[in-house]
Design a protein around this nucleic acid. Sequence first.
DNA 1: TTACAGGGTTAGAGCGCTCCAACCAATAGA
DNA 2: TCTATTGGTTGGAGCGCTCTAACCCTGTAA
Lengths: 333, 333
Amino acid sequence: MVRPTMEDVALRAGVSRALVSLVMRGSPKVSEQRRSAVLKAAEELGYSPHAMARSLASRTSTVLGVMVSDLHNSFFAEVVDGIDEVAHQQGFELIINTGGRSPARERRALESLLSFRPAGLILLSPVVPATSIGKAADQLPVVLVARSSRISTVDTVNDDGEVGARLAVEHLVSLGHSRIAHLDGGEGSQAGPRRRGYVAAMESHGLAPQVVTSEYTDVAGARAIRRLLAEDDLPTAIFSCNDFNAVGAISALEDAGLRVPEDISVVGYDNTSLAALRHVSLTTVDQPRAEFGRLAASALLHRVRDDRAEPVRHLLTPSLVVRTTTAPPGGLR
Amino acid sequence: MVRPTMEDVALRAGVSRALVSLVMRGSPKVSEQRRSAVLKAAEELGYSPHAMARSLASRTSTVLGVMVSDLHNSFFAEVVDGIDEVAHQQGFELIINTGGRSPARERRALESLLSFRPAGLILLSPVVPATSIGKAADQLPVVLVARSSRISTVDTVNDDGEVGARLAVEHLVSLGHSRIAHLDGGEGSQAGPRRRGYVAAMESHGLAPQVVTSEYTDVAGARAIRRLLAEDDLPTAIFSCNDFNAVGAISALEDAGLRVPEDISVVGYDNTSLAALRHVSLTTVDQPRAEFGRLAASALLHRVRDDRAEPVRHLLTPSLVVRTTTAPPGGLR
DNA sequence: TTACAGGGTTAGAGCGCTCCAACCAATAGA
DNA sequence: TCTATTGGTTGGAGCGCTCTAACCCTGTAA
């Protein structure tokens, strides 16, 4: 249970500890003969470098801290994939922590990530107050994903929710819809831009916006639809704040005997794997999630290296994925 | 950008570095007066301990390494939740890595986790060969989740797939079904026990098993159904290897004009969040995922502490969640 | 009075590594 | 011949912390 150290390898290979260190770091200034002797000794002993000791001694880190607010959401899984890709390719490791969407737990998670003195931090849709983020940013490079910030030392990567909402509305309008309601994400992250984009797009077409209070869950989506049904105020198309909400809306509609898309069209947001299931086949707005991750990692690594001053603000353009939950309004067919 | 050290705190509080160390570790043998002086100095400087230096000096670690084979699968997210719960409660941090379901990537992930010299390792459904696991287990405590092993130094936590399959079959039989096909998970993890349980349960009822080759995806589920339809060999009930497969099967059935559950019943496995969506509402076999995580973490922490010899083999009993995709066969209504 | 105990505190070594400056050939230039 | 130069190698200090042993009190027992 006790792992060999550099000293052991050096002894066995008949060289100094410093030389072993050079070999382990792939230095070119080592003779081929010594190098292979060291490698052989290391192999025989089953030696591998101690990352923490290395980072302590070099006062540098090859670790990036990633705080995921909610592991259950596959949105984050795909962002993490993108981060992973860039980080590994540049020789960095990820240490992932979860914040569970609670400010208190997130603070602890942040603190614990910081105690590892990572090279930088990527926070995915954090809910902690800006001051906490600012304090972290004083200590190391920080990149925010799916959350904006005005702090001048942190970089951000977001999708342009207003554009995404406009995309959805344009699609529905081009199909011939004019009564289009928006099931709103309330306090949820990015709900604001989506709502604003919806309202702006509707108005630019001279249509009356109809914002229905809802949330980012399927239960909330179903509830909102039932409310509309009860008020006998159903539009011909629904633009949901996200895919879960849209799926909830669809099942409430079907429960009421309405057919999607024949009687009413539904558009989601996020293009989660759920939306892609044949059984669901939801028209939705796609965010380039892996690209979020790649950009976040690149921005962070740049900052880690050159310690640049001006913040990077990535605002990615979403795209529409048309599937089978949208069609011209019933009256037009 | 440079964080204060213990030395700085000691200087400011007018005490020795060792005393600061004692305070940070909550030692009782420190006078109240000094303790508060140290705490005050630490607060003012924004000091927090350096986890890596601590672990290096103490030759112990408060980190548990977790390798997740696939972050996209929410099954793992929930297991991680369970691990997280127990680990944090006992003062341990998680460092999570992903293996991406490829042996090569998993090997690298494992190596990188080991380089942090964590107190122990939890591998979620790893695909690396047993020898790699054995080598890791020589160095530190290892717990396997959703993968069995005969290595005597590793603990395992699994669900009893045979029991789960039997549960599904019993449910369908009790509804009156006798022609029940199983869409098989092939090489997938845990597909074997599920298949065996299915076959055994069918035979114990004197029914003929019908195993259809498939995979753990919705596309494969749909394909399997289309094959059955083409052969005109459709049973009255389907037991899918997992929820995704089941959802794929359902959409292929609906595409063919069949109604679920009126014309044919479908049972999944895993009780993913997908199955719980009202729109899907799939009858499925539930595994206690968070419990997996809690048990894995407990087993690991026990081993970390007392270095016990006999392996722990948890085999959890799954349960059936009946929703709306199962009903008596058409002929009986 | 001296001895002793024990709570509170500290110096110093050391964890496994990196990095710097020094060192040692061996070769090249003057 | 002597001095640079260069490629290869090494000892030692030090990263931020813990831990052991020693230390210094003050209070109490002998």
